[in-house]
Amino acid sequence: MLRFILKRLGLALLVALTVSFISFSLLFLSGDPAIAIAGESANAEDVAAIRALYGFDRPMMVQYGDWLWHALQFDFGVSYYFRLPVADLIAERLSVTMTLGVCGIVFALLIAVPLGVIAAIRPNSLIDRIALFLSVAGQAMPSFWFGLILIVIFAIQLRILPASGADTWQHFIMPTIVLGYYAMPAIMRLTRAGMLEVLSADYIRTARAKGASEGRVLFKHALRNAIIPVVSLAAVQMGFMLGGSIVVESVFALHGAGYLAWESIGRNDLPTVQALILVFALFYIVFTFLADVLNAWLDPRMRSA
């Protein structure tokens, strides 16, 4: 178990390092970052001054080392637009995104797991078909469009939910649904497939032979085994969702980290964009790492290995 965790941790760190390099080199994709900051109309002296100020005249690897060294201390430089430390900007916005992500994954699990279980207990029943339709439709639904439809229905027509902002818990209802809906199909399919497989296992027959009630068989004996891969999928999905929150946050004008990313891209605020890519990637890496550890911990066969 410890060996496994250490191995996974090493891999996670290596992935994080590589991602950090990629997000850093994005800065150089545009050619000369100094021009980007100074603006197209700046004269050569201004550009040269900026180049010296930000250290763009050094070799790229030196700049990367410098940036990484500071990033390790949560110093991502200064935003070109706000003239504030990027780390502070992100920290301020992250709580909204995290709230949204947690709500989204909880919503997805609350809907998808029961649906998947019922679908597996009664294959080809009406509920199974509805669940299948929801999962197929869910994968095809553009999230921005889904969000706008919800706004039209609940904010414009019915006027029961606020269309944008993040002031009250009601503001989070529609974004949660949109973001959660995105993670639902995969979770539901995996729950259904897992339950179907587990329900035909010999140990389920053993449980019935013991005289356990159907409920006990389903939830204590079957779900406990079927849920193991679902838990790690949920953790991975959480990582994906945070990265995908940019669309949802822009639809509902939720001023979270995703919204900040969108604004910063529009403003050519590269240090902020770089830092955000790294932060979202780190979230994904941390969550997949947690998923692996959780998986190993939930499965006795791996726990003792």
Partner: peptide, 19 residues
Amino acid sequence: RGDRMSMIFQEPMTSLNPA
């Protein structure tokens, strides 16, 4: 079941719940 009549199955490898 399990109280007054019980059953032993063919496959001991898979008849116990791994969890």
